[in-house]
Amino acid sequence: MTRSIRPLTRRAALVAVTAAAGLVLAACGGDGDSGGSGHGATSSPSATSSPGAGAGAGAAASADASAGAHNAQDVSFAQGMIPHHRQALEMARLADGRASSGKVKDLAARIEKAQDPEIRTMTGWLKAWGEDVPEPSSGMDHSAHAGMPGMMGGQDMAMLEKASGEAFDTMFLTMMVEHHEGAVEMATTEQDKGRYGPAKAMADDIVTAQTAEIAEMKKLLGKG
């Protein structure tokens, strides 16, 4: 579904989209109002995980108490979504010093607020289950997870890191739409095949919140 290194034509198309959407985003510049409910309203750690969400003793104790209640899909979901969320956080943290639109900055802040606690929650599950926790990628190199739905390749991340202003806004939104679509796909699989209740609940929240954010981002790009 995604490529670790997109063809030159894909990157050229992205640059073209950046130029075409500049006028739409210019109208949003400096506007700090939220463009949608986003993760913050639907995906708090307390709503998506067992009591004591995170990598602490509470999450471990809860998961241990439910021994046998998870399956291989639950493990795959957590091991895949952790690096997927980490890349989203890397993208979101670039917005503060590069984005020109207040709405883009607000969206990025909401993504970070929602997904960082979810990473800690999933880490807690994996540790409690005795499963491997994915190691953080080196810098912006996510080549080890390049085949995952919605993951950006190294060249895409490098382009985003070098962009600024309206060009950054459009590139960020375009890439994050694809990233969110991948997360929704992964979460939908967990909804269908997972067994562990808190993991399925988190998947529900991801589908709801990120689908809403996709619509919000497309509107900012003038596609809504």
Rank of each mutant, 00 (worst) to 15 (best):
M81E: 05
M81A: 05
K223S: 11
V15G: 07
R6K: 08
V15I: 15
T208C: 09
A69Q: 05
T48D: 07
G222M: 08
V207C: 09
R3K: 11
H85C: 05
S62T: 07
Q87T: 03
V24L: 12
T2D: 15
A47R: 07
T121L: 02
A167H: 03
S137F: 02
A92L: 09
V133K: 00
T42C: 03
E190D: 01
A201Y: 00
K218R: 15
D156Q: 15
C28E: 14
S49Q: 01
S43D: 13
D156L: 08
E213A: 10
T189C: 09
M91R: 07
I82D: 01
H145S: 04
R93V: 01
M122N: 02
A128T: 06
G150V: 03
L220M: 15
D106V: 10
G224V: 13
T189P: 01
M152K: 06
A128P: 10
T48H: 02
K162G: 14
E135L: 03
T2V: 14
Q210T: 08
L160F: 02
S46L: 11
R93S: 03
G153E: 10
E166P: 12
K200Y: 01
D204N: 11
M157F: 00
T42Q: 10
V104K: 13
G139P: 00
G68F: 00
G35F: 06
V104C: 14
G147S: 15
M152I: 00
T48F: 01
H85M: 06
A55E: 11
D156E: 15
H179L: 09
M1Y: 12
T42N: 09
E135W: 00
V17T: 15
A92M: 08
T9P: 04
E213T: 09
A212F: 04
A144R: 09
M176L: 12
A78D: 12
